[in-house]
Amino acid sequence: MDKKTSGKNYQTDTQLTHVGRYPDQFHGFVNPPVVHASTVLFPDVETMATGNQSYTYGRRGTPTTEALENAITELEGAAGTRLATSGLNAVALACLSCLKTGDHFLIPDTAYGPTRHFADTVLPKMNVEVAYYDPTRATDIKGLFKENTAALFLEAPGSLTFEMQDIHALSAAAKTIDATVLMDNTWASPLYCKPIDLGVDLSIQAGTKYIVGHSDVMLGTIAASEKAWGALDTVYGAMGVHVAPDDVYLALRGLRTLSVRFERHFKNTMSVINWLKDRDEVAAIRYPALESDPGYHLWKRDFSGASGLFAFDFKAGTTKEQSNHFFNSLNLFGLGYSWGGFESLAIPVKLKGIRTTTDIDPDCLSARLHIGLEDPQDLIADLEQALESAFQ
């Protein structure tokens, strides 16, 4: 924050407005400048030899990247933050910062698909043993620990199927063996969940989604606890990661409206879900903020809000043709990956084969929806005509 607000215990909405802004350092301008830089000059060889100045090389940080890192650090309650080129890049950097040859790594069976792909293709080349666990059975986790278990990964809610995890219990268990705890917190962002306060060491965001909020930037963030910060900073520097200043600027701009966008996403989502609950074509809705959801009590305890991403299962007996017809009939919902932007999106989900340690109906066909900022009645009308067209 700027010097007038730094160190004060402000509420989140006030933080979002002021974090990462330093008007006193930039001639009074409200927003930090977009600094395009590679070379940074030194006043003399003595300073060059010691590196004793704020910035030394563009890849190692500029006022632009520092502004976003400081903003995320304050929102997360972290010791420090590093930026990545995407959410997946953030996952990879976080993992590489706490794993070495011979380590054992536990990942929830509901983890984001590209996270699994990284774990299954890259980590074995480092001779890291990867094992998947049931995300809903926190009391069983100690039974999976080995002498070489170095890290425990969390994702809440889980990708596509939205199971919640007991962050408290899992983090506490990992601490008994001094394992590093990582968590993908993209769904809630630091606005609605603060993993580091719950015992997590590395809080990961796909900033591409809600932080940016406008579907036009790829970006990731990794916020670290005191325990994890040094190793993260070392790996970040060694890997030569750098995010373009224009992308960072757009992420800072998106951050300012995160709270008001989230409120609208949640309001619209509940309107759509309350309508879907009564549809004969829908067998179940997967959304932790619903009181009927199995993970509701964990969401209520650890989260202060919910985002616009959820899924629903089509009724038993739905054919692939009917599912495809539904998606192809949508007008306002775009068919596309990612989420968190202002627009509504939909993708088909076939659960068969995506889990290895948990039971799931292999014949269940599902839809994952991201509810955007459109009028919810228009979204409902679009869903209604697509369902009726597919199931007539």
Rank of each mutant, 00 (worst) to 15 (best):
D2V: 02
T12I: 15
G20F: 00
Y22C: 00
D24Q: 14
H27R: 07
F29I: 01
P33F: 02
V34N: 00
V35F: 10
H36G: 03
F42I: 09
E46L: 13
T47N: 08
Q53N: 14
Y55A: 09
R59L: 13
G61H: 03
E66M: 03
E69G: 04
N70C: 04
I72G: 00
E74H: 08
A78L: 04
A84F: 05
G87V: 05
A90I: 08
V91H: 14
L93T: 09
L96M: 15
G113Q: 13
H117Q: 14
P124G: 09
P124D: 10
Y132S: 01
Y133P: 03
T136D: 09
I141S: 04
L144N: 07
F145V: 08
A151L: 03
A156M: 10
L160M: 09
E163A: 12
M164H: 05
M164I: 00
S171V: 06
T176C: 11
I177L: 15
K194F: 00
V200F: 10
G207K: 01
T208W: 01
T208Q: 05
I211R: 06
G220P: 03
T221R: 01
A223M: 07
K227I: 01
K227H: 10
A228S: 06
A231H: 03
H242C: 15
V243L: 15
D246T: 05
A251I: 06
G254R: 02
E263N: 15
S271A: 14
V272K: 00
I273N: 01
P288A: 13
H297D: 13
R301A: 13
D302K: 03
G317C: 06
G317S: 04
T318F: 12
H325L: 14
G336V: 07
K350I: 12
K352I: 01
D361A: 13
R368N: 04
G372S: 11
P376A: 06
A381Y: 02
Q392L: 12
